[in-house]
Design a protein around this nucleic acid. Structure first.
Lengths: 246, 246
DNA sequence: ACCTGATTGCGTATGCTATACACACATCGT
DNA sequence: ACGATGTGTGTATAGCATACGCAATCAGGT
């Protein structure tokens, strides 16, 4: 389970990249990393991330718990692989005009959002670091490609994609949090709860927002709010492209 | 432990807001929610969030584990209160020209980042929903106040603050992730690991970024990268203020 | 002054978790 | 054929959140 290569990466991540040596002695493996990850994703999709335990995944596969540890050094690794598998490769769209980076980037963000909507549990997996798993890199690739006509530096392009990905994740997280909270708990009426708690003199600006109906747990404006955040970031990128000599 | 008010909020959150009824019969409480939260924060700050268990916090206070459950319905509530306590109220600055929203908002973001740098474990606490605890609201208040001269609608102001907060959290999370990973693990050389794994034909854009040195685990450029993301968002807000009739 | 009922803190118990370790067995290169 | 190596399994450990019942404590109504 030590890294066969010198990358310092966990062996299971390398396995996800398809790095394989020649077959060693010993019994043929009856399991596959892929099958394990698929079973874990299945559990997360049906019963939530909290239901994903090594015991449960092993039970789902009909093997003993400890068998999994022949393929994964720790549960964290499994979680990372689950995220990558559930994310999948970015969808393929017709390549538009390279000069028109904005719709391309917008589509990228919306595609990513769709993934997070399909697998909300992804948002509950703590991010271990910069993207390294295959599909994460594929998404990064597609994102960077959208920016090819902008004249930004490579470093700027990368920052833009990371920024945008964060914004999407963040918004999805908030939206999912509201939804999940209203799933089991007594649905917290956020606006009325706030109205009862805050003092107008101590929090005039929040009170004003409250009075204007800006704070509302309505799900209807959700898409509009996402579009707002997305447009702000894209406007910011636009400003940058115009400032730089292209 | 049920909510005394009709807000639907956990009783412990209401307690954090200072909502109190008259003293009921029974022995005087020997503990305080404040003391419990303070002890938990202390544990998190010294030994990390993973070390925060009910057993450990109780031990730190010299009480039994179950005593804590007289003040907190579940561990999640404690975590929320810990975040709010560790965040604290936003620092007070001299009020600048209300027309100059940009430096004010920039300072807000940097203040928030400073908090997250001081208490990195905050980033590991899953966000349960929109901000509701007292200090969270205080930060929101200060953020909204910075936007008072922009002519944005209340809804837009709110979205901007949420967006900005997300960006700060996201960036801090990534930076802390790299740092934490290099804390215990064999320090993953991200750039070289990627270089070894990816194929130039499959990932030309990522390869280009890699070749240009844009992908680098150097901590030096970190502040610059944060400023980049911050400036993109602020540029986006700027575009909006110019478009709207103020 | 006494009782009632609420509330505190505690001890115990349950069921869950990740994972370390030792074992039996299968298969490869020699 | 043999040694090395990897696979799956069973058992054991240490930790976790938290449900439950009990004894002690105190305020308010009588």
């Amino acid at each position: 389970m030590s890294d066969g290569d010198g990358t310092g990466l966990p062996a299971s991540i390398e396995a996800a990249w398809g790095v394989r040596g020649r077959t060693p002695p010993g019994p043929r493996p009856g399991l596959t990393l892929e099958r394990i990850v698929a079973a874990a994703v299945e559990v997360a999709s049906t019963d939530g991330l909290a239901a994903v335990s090594m015991v449960r995944v092993a039970k789902e596969l009909g093997v003993s718990t400890m068998a999994l540890y022949r393929y994964v050094a720790a549960k964290d690794e499994l979680l990372d692989l689950m995220v990558d598998a559930a994310t999948g490769p970015p969808p393929v769209h017709e390549q538009a005009d390279p000069e028109q980076w904005r719709p391309g980037l917008s589509l990228w963000a919306r595609d990513y959002l769709a993934v997070l909507r399909r697998h909300p549990w992804i948002l509950q997996v703590p991010i271990p670091g910069p993207p390294i798993a295959p599909n994460q890199i594929a998404w990064l690739e597609r994102g960077l490609t959208q920016l090819r006509g902008t004249g930004l530096t490579e470093s700027e392009k990368l920052s833009v994609i990371m920024l945008l990905g964060g914004v999407v994740r963040n918004w999805a997280s908030l939206a999912a949090g509201i939804h999940a909270a209203g799933d089991q708990r007594p649905p917290i009426h956020y606006a009325s709860a706030l109205a009862r708690l805050i003092d107008v003199r101590r929090f005039p600006a929040v009170s004003a927002a409250l009075a204007a109906g800006a704070i509302d747990d309505d799900q209807d404006d959700a898409d509009a709010e996402f579009a707002f955040g997305l447009d702000r970031v894209l406007d910011g990128v636009d400003t940058l492209t115009r400032r730089n000599p292209s």
